[in-house]
């Protein structure tokens, strides 16, 4: 079937199998390998992307369902060589080890900060509780999201 959608601000269209999962469209058809895959049951969150600004597990969305919607992946976070505060925060606070969960965590946290620019630690923990990190024990991820929240509001105040 034919599909037309927007990925990272660019219009993409093409023919896909009706059963194709969005994660496979992103990774295989578009070659955007930053979105990962980690389970068969929609539990791990390695595949999280934004659909119209809301986090979705792209292993649980059919490509066909994206017609007319806007998808954002981890590759869109850095703009003109400028890192998203979350990316920077993850580096500052050692919020990643193997890095496999990182894209999904970043996108989940991006959606959180867009909605709630000043979340408490508990709100952060709840927001990322649909995503598994096997390496970090989450503490530094929470701290990285706080770092990003603080730095984001600092830049916003300057403007």
């Amino acid at each position: 079937m034919d599909i037309s959608t927007t990925v990272n601000g660019e219009q993409v269209s093409g023919e896909v199998e009706p059963r194709q999962l969005l994660v496979h469209f992103i990774r295989e058809t578009l070659g955007l390998k930053g979105t990962h895959w980690g389970c068969d049951t929609s539990n791990c969150g390695a595949c999280v992307v934004l659909m119209d600004g809301r986090p979705v597990k792209s292993c649980t969305v059919l490509t066909a369902m994206c017609e007319g919607h806007e998808i954002r992946t981890v590759e869109s976070l850095e703009v003109d060589g400028e890192l998203d505060p979350l990316q920077q925060g993850f580096h500052e606070r050692h919020a990643l080890q193997c890095g496999f969960c990182t894209p999904g965590m970043l996108m989940t946290a991006r959606a959180l900060l867009d909605e709630n620019p000043d979340p408490t630690d508990q709100e952060i923990r709840t927001a990322i509780s649909g995503a598994i990190c096997r390496c970090t024990g989450y503490q530094n991820i929470v701290s990285a999201v706080r770092w990003a929240a603080e730095h984001e509001s600092a830049t916003k105040q300057e403007i």
Binding site: E75, F90, L96, T102
Partner: peptide
Amino acid sequence: LKRKEDARFIRGKGTYLDD
């Protein structure tokens, strides 16, 4: 010391087997 390897991972540019 903050990690060197972060540069690729925070950008989704790691290369895992399936990539």
